[in-house]
Design a protein around this nucleic acid. Structure first.
Lengths: 142, 142
DNA sequence: CTTTTTAATGCAAATGATTTGCAATAGCGT
DNA sequence: ACGCTATTGCAAATCATTTGCATTAAAAAG
């Protein structure tokens, strides 16, 4: 089974250490993020947070996402269409396959592809700072 | 020298056939696109077009880009940061390496990577409709 | 546990890119 | 040249995200 309880890097501790206040909205958002298996966007996070504390504002969600991104606690993805989507960081690096019909995101990883990317960049005289590999597709029919 | 004159798929003919009017703004924008080696955004295209005919509007640039994209005459890329950038279609498929310092775009292609992508998607039960591979990097120092 | 300090919040207004409604204009078939 | 209607320019509208500011509330201090 999946480990759910210990998989949470203690961001609260890290935030305290950095002199960042642990507020009620931030606690709630952090909880939502760690509870989540999918890749929600700011509006979805806002709605889930509102259900817990209806006074939370969308601005705060955005501000918190930016804060967490800066701490390296989450990754922001600008997939095609509309809003940015987030996922908690901490796992292994991976790329994404987006189901064009459902919006579902499937994570995958290929050392071979990573190596080829490095090789290509090097041959062009560049160092890769980061990259983005997204496959957009539909479930195979048959 | 680069070939400039024959490299232009005759979109005007194609548009006429589709009952689309060849207007002055469209002619100018099409010309800018075929003359261009880089990946300009709508604002850059608008400025280059304005230099030729100052009455052209940004809306028309956007509308024309959408029209051309629909025809398959250009590709739209949503690289990181700000605006979408365009390039005329017609060449071989390729991916992009973006110079984070200059914004320059370098095109590259890897059959191996393409094949691996297909393989991964297949193993996940998906057919790839399209994909996006962008490397963000800086010129190697040394 | 009250006071103090100042970061964080909520709200509304601002941004920035792109799109759209609409009246005026200009392709192009006749 | 004429008329039909697609296309344009302009301003206003969208959409996602950010920001200014007065208020609130963490957490540091007493």
């Amino acid at each position: 089974m999946n480990q759910h309880q210990n998989r949470k890097p203690d961001y609260e501790r890290e935030m305290r250490r950095a002199g960042i206040r642990i507020t009620r909205p931030r606690k709630i958002i952090l909880q939502i993020l760690t509870d989540t298996e999918d890749h929600p966007d700011a509006m979805e996070i806002f709605q889930r947070a509102s259900a817990i504390d209806s006074s939370i504002s969308l601005s705060t969600v955005y501000r918190t996402m930016k804060l967490l991104e800066g701490m390296g606690a989450i990754h922001r993805h600008a997939f095609e269409g509309g809003r940015a989507r987030f996922e908690q960081a901490g796992g292994e690096h991976h790329d994404h396959l987006i189901d064009m019909d459902t919006g579902d995101v499937i994570e995958f990883h290929s050392n071979k592809i990573e190596a080829l990317q490095e090789e290509i960049a090097r041959s062009l005289g560049y160092d890769i700072v980061h990259h983005r590999l997204e496959l957009y597709g539909r479930k195979r029919k048959r």
